[in-house]
């Protein structure tokens, strides 16, 4: 299995990178661009792991290390390899 993890700044947490990139996109003429939020994308290979176990491990990985609950939210998908 493979875990695809998306980590984003929590609602209400200032995202200076996102603000700057949003401004740059509007400067490029994309006037429709409103908020931009920049986060992290993490892929975790979990070979020979059943889906339920993979979910359990990924959740633990997010809670213990990958995301800081004070400032970040996360979601993930578990997909088949290949």
């Amino acid at each position: 299995m493979k875990a695809l993890v998306y980590i984003t700044p929590k609602e209400g947490i200032l995202d200076p990178q996102g603000l700057t990139v949003g401004k740059a996109l509007r400067n490029l003429g994309m006037k429709q661009v409103a908020d931009v939020r920049i986060g992290k994308y993490v892929e975790i290979d979990l070979p020979k792991t059943k889906r339920k176990k993979a979910e359990e491990i990924t959740k633990q990985a997010c809670d213990r290390l990958l995301a800081n609950p004070n400032i970040e939210a996360y979601r993930f998908e578990i997909v088949e390899d290949g």
Binding site: P9, I13, P16, Q17, T20, N68, N70
Partner: peptide, 10 residues
């Protein structure tokens, strides 16, 4: 408590 994120100026 709290967290430390990128400086506002980046």
């Amino acid at each position: 408590p709290g967290a430390l994120i990128s400086n506002q100026s980046l």
